[in-house]
Computed example of a mutant assay.
Amino acid sequence: MSDKKMDDFSRILERLEKRLLKAGKENSIKMTRDLITVQNRLYMQLESLSWLQRRLSIKGQLPGLRGWAASPDVLLHLHTHIMTSRPSVVVEFGSGASTLVIADALRQNGMGKLISIEHSNHYGVQTLATLEAEYLQTWVDLRIGDLESWEDEHMSPKNAEKPARWYPKSLLNGVESVDLLWVDGPPGVTCLYSRYPALPAMSDRLSTKAEVWMDDTIRQEEKDICERWGQDHGFQLEYYPLEKGLGRLTRAV
Rank of each mutant, 00 (worst) to 15 (best):
Y167R: 01
K158W: 12
V178Y: 07
L199D: 05
D152I: 05
G188T: 13
S177Y: 14
P187L: 04
L192E: 14
S194P: 00
K162I: 12
A164H: 12
G185L: 08
K169N: 05
K169I: 11
D179Q: 09
Y193N: 12
Y193C: 02
E161V: 13
A201D: 08
Y193K: 09
Y193P: 05
K169H: 06
L172V: 03
M155G: 04
N159S: 14
A160L: 02
P200K: 08
L181P: 01
D179F: 02
N173D: 12
Y167T: 01
V175P: 00
C191P: 01
P163G: 01
W182H: 12
D152N: 11
D179K: 02
A201P: 07
V178F: 09
P163T: 03
Y196F: 15
R195F: 00
L180S: 05
V183R: 03
N173Q: 15
M202G: 04
E161R: 15
D152L: 08
L192M: 13
V189W: 10
L199R: 07
N159P: 00
P168R: 01
N173E: 14
L172C: 01
V175F: 07
L180G: 08
P187R: 02
N173S: 14
E176M: 09
D184S: 11
G188M: 13
G174N: 06
V183S: 05
H154Y: 06
P163N: 09
P157A: 08
D184M: 04
K158R: 13
A164C: 07
G188I: 07
L192Y: 11
K162R: 13
E151H: 14
E176D: 15
E151C: 00
E161H: 14
Y196T: 04
K162G: 07
P163K: 08
W166I: 04
S203A: 13
E176C: 10
Y193S: 11
G188H: 06
L180F: 10
H154V: 10
E153K: 10
E153R: 10
C191M: 05
C191R: 03
T190F: 00
E151Q: 09
A198I: 00
P163R: 02
E153T: 11
K169P: 08
K169T: 11
L180Y: 09
P197Q: 10
L180D: 11
N159A: 14
L180K: 05
P186Y: 07
G185E: 08
L181A: 07
G174I: 02
N159I: 11
L172Q: 07
M202S: 06
L172F: 07
S194L: 09
Y167I: 15
S156R: 05
L199E: 03
P186Q: 10
V178Q: 03
P187H: 04
T190V: 13
G174C: 02
E153A: 14
E153P: 00
A201H: 01
W166H: 09
E161W: 12
W182G: 01
R165Q: 15
N159W: 13
Y196G: 04
P197F: 03
M202V: 09
